[in-house]
């Protein structure tokens, strides 16, 4: 009996006597208001944030890709530069060494030449001096011998000697 009653209630409850237009209006109006408010205060900012994030991520990916490429290029350039610099340094060192060697040889040659020249000059000087000395000596020797001779002749020649000298001289003449 109770079951039948229950069923009746259910059916009557479901059937809904008449159409409550007012409820429908409340429903529609409140839903439209909800739609408008949520659209403005919830969905729009939410979707904007999501969109922004998407754009941010994609731009970040682009930027990362770009910086990776840049870094790669920079590393390549740096390696090339390093290689070039190394070669250059090598060349400079080599050149310096060569120049040093050359300079060394040059200096040695100059020094040798200078020494030679100095030696020659000295030899020449010595010879000149010797010559001069000889000439001076000769002049002195002549005058000195004359003086000596005259002195000897003045003092030493006695009458005997003179006689002898004369006689010798005469003898020579006789021959």
């Amino acid at each position: 009996m109770k079951g039948v009653e229950l069923l009746q209630t259910l059916i009557i409850g479901a059937a809904i006597g008449g159409t409550p237009v007012g409820s429908m209006l409340v429903q529609i109006i409140s839903f439209i208001i909800l739609l408008a408010l949520l659209g403005k205060f919830a969905w729009k900012p939410l979707m904007k944030v999501m969109q922004d994030r998407q754009e941010f991520i994609s731009s970040e990916i682009d930027a990362a890709e770009q910086s990776r490429k840049d870094a790669e290029a920079a590393a390549k350039t740096a390696a090339e530069e390093l290689k070039k610099t190394r070669a250059e340094a090598h060349a400079i060192i080599e050149e310096a060494r060569k120049a040093g060697q050359q300079q060394e040889e040059q200096i040695i040659a100059i020094a040798r030449r200078e020494a030679e020249r100095l030696k020659d000059a000295a030899v020449e000087d010595i010879a000149n001096e010797k010559e001069k000395a000889m000439q001076a000596l000769q002049a002195q020797v002549a005058s000195l011998s004359v003086q000596i001779a005259s002195k000897i002749i003045e003092k030493e020649i006695t009458s005997d000697d003179q006689d002898k000298l004369i006689s010798d001289y005469v003898k020579e003449l006789e021959r």
Binding site: I16, G18, T19, P20, V21, G22, S23, V26, Q27, S30, F31, I33, L34
Partner: peptide, 14 residues
């Protein structure tokens, strides 16, 4: 006509 409980619940739910 209003079904008051339905209308009330509609508004509460909103």
């Amino acid at each position: 006509d209003f079904n008051l409980s339905t209308s009330l619940m509609t508004i509460i739910s909103s």
